[in-house]
Write a protein that binds this DNA or RNA. Structure first.
Ligand SMILES: [Mn+2]
Ligand SMILES: [Mn+2]
Ligand SMILES: [Zn+2]
Ligand SMILES: [Zn+2]
Lengths: 144, 144
DNA sequence: ATTACAAATGATAATCATTATCATTATCGC
DNA sequence: GCGATAATGATAATGATTATCATTTGTAAT
């Protein structure tokens, strides 16, 4: 929604604000899901705002580098993207049978624990942690 | 090493113990790394125990389903596999610059915390958790 | 040990996701 | 508005993984 914010972000990264990029972000805002490149492409086509598939890939990549999107992988052979929701990070429950995905926001103690863990790992391995992802695999309500 | 154990595992899953499968497992025992299908294939070729690439893929999949191997994804576009090490689970630190991966065994408090968290998620979402994976991304010692 | 049959394999074609190429078009600072 | 340059789109190319199918191999029963 806040197109203003994107303008600022694109300016900061010295990138141009194009109608393709705007249209792609609108898809994510409307669908509020984890979308693959192909899904974004199809959604745009359906809205008569066709954008080339190569441009979709390019911009999903760019938006991920800019931190506006996040790339996630659920083990089904293709990448998915979602809007970065701040300040609350979230993790994923992936059903091994039907492939459905549940988002859940980190619990407070969880965020705290992971912060401490990251500090520990940082010193122990001299590794500067910038982000993390956690996936739980199992059986969802319908499939268990 | 304990070929005996594999025999038992394959019998349990009603699968045949073949020389290909044995050769593939030997590669993992020798290399102790995260290997892609292509890397396993090349390693076998180098040892004059050539196994078709399709067979490598098929068996990496089978061994994963059997729990003998684990499938991991570091964001570089191809799947990697590693021997399942029990009872101590481990997680991964992935360098965003050079792509190197550090394994680290779950700390004691970490295992405990995750167990509790899994119970909580189990009841909250009625989701039966079977496994989890955690990835930390950042800059390794050399790249920071 | 031999047999019989299904499972496994290997060569290779096919598929699917993603990336590269390059001619054309759109954006932005002047 | 102009010009430099980034962005786009059509499509070819690539790379990983899966499907196909004729042949071989493992296993359990004889
Ligand atoms: Mn999510
Ligand atoms: Mn590992
Ligand atoms: Zn399910
Ligand atoms: Zn590095």
């Amino acid at each position: 929604m806040p197109k203003r914010e994107w303008d600022r972000a694109f300016a900061y990264f010295k990138k141009k604000m194009t109608s393709s990029r705007q249209a792609i972000m609108e898809v994510f805002e409307e669908e509020k899901k984890h979308l693959s490149a192909e899904e974004v492409y199809d959604s745009l086509k359906g809205k008569n705002q066709k954008v080339g598939i190569a441009t979709v890939y390019r911009n999903l990549d760019l938006l991920t580098q800019m931190g506006i999107l996040h790339r996630v992988y659920f083990g089904d052979g293709l990448e998915h993207y979602e809007i970065t929701r701040k300040p609350i990070h979230h993790h994923h429950l992936v059903c091994n049978k039907c492939g459905s995905v549940i988002d859940y926001s980190e619990l407070i103690e969880e965020s705290e624990f992971i912060s401490k863990l990251e500090q520990e790992l940082n010193t122990r391995y001299n590794f500067k942690i910038e982000s993390h992802q956690m996936y739980f695999y199992g059986l969802c309500k319908k499939c268990r």
